[in-house]
Amino acid sequence: MALLDVEDLSVTFARRGQRTVRAVDGVSFSVDAGEVVGLVGESGCGKSVTSLAIMGLLPRQKGVHIGGKASFDGTDLLQLDARSMRDVRGRDVAMIFQDPLSSLNPVVPLGIQVTEVLQRHRGMKGEAAAKEAAALLDRVGIPDPRRRLKEFPHQLSGGMRQRALIAMAVACRPRLLIADEPTTALDVTIQAQILELLKELVRESGTALVMITHDLGVVAGMCDTINVLYAGRVIETARRRPLFAEPHHPYTVGLLGSVPRLDAGRGERLTPIPGSVRDVLPWPDGCAFAPRCHRRVDACVGEPPELVLTHTGHSYRCVNPVTGPVAPARAQEEQA
């Protein structure tokens, strides 16, 4: 059994006087213990909403409807009441977010923001908690942790702030860590460091990681399995190597084409996918990508495409898939 099994997750937002938004529309994926799984897709495709739904962090109010299942270790998180979910969050499942500055409380010293998790879930107090907090900051590569504990978020650099948030997330050795675009708000050099840190942490602790990103370049270096999302649906799932070597969905191929490569020459242009997700919301019943797809055929409209499973465990939803290796150069880069 997988550690996390998301089945047919759907989230709709209904607002009075506005069109109902189906932000997540039947997403399924699973995460094994210790596995690194990528959720990749353009901005607005429902990645954050998916992760917030799993965490129970979507507003519990009229108009927000969540369907499907998210089984963590056999328990459906979506069925837990608010109080039990508080026990799970931060202890078994932790999360880090995109913008480290706004994700930290500006008026509370860093030390308290770390120790409050230790106190909540591990019952640690006073000096023991402070010691553990310093050890955690040290572990995520923050120098002089004792002094840093007394400081406030605005006194830290962007990279240090994200490291601090990672320290808080791993404080209780969760079995699952969800990272929602953890490097998007950071400088390129810092991005690489943070990714390296995450990789190292999950390798050492055996924590499973769901890595959310719009950037295939990020998942290329670290994910075991990759799920590509489009307009609230998973349109392709594969292990890392086959996905990069032989993507089947035209959208995935397009995403690969728009990965900025460090080895690309100056003159080389990226080949972005024309249009954006927003152009096609709400999507018709068929394939949501059809309006932007260069391989569109008549069968694309009407029924949503069935999930096709290949013998390699690669699955996709497309009636006119790309076959054969498309990006040999990238496949090699992958093996390196």
Binding site: R86, D87, V88, R89, G90, R91, S103, V117, R120, L165
Partner: peptide, 19 residues
């Protein structure tokens, strides 16, 4: 965002509220 972070840590309602 930091309120969401606090919630993501599973802090009790009263700590989220006060702190």
């Amino acid at each position: 965002d930091f309120v969401r972070t606090a919630e993501a840590k599973g802090l009790t309602e009263s700590v989220v509220r006060r702190r």
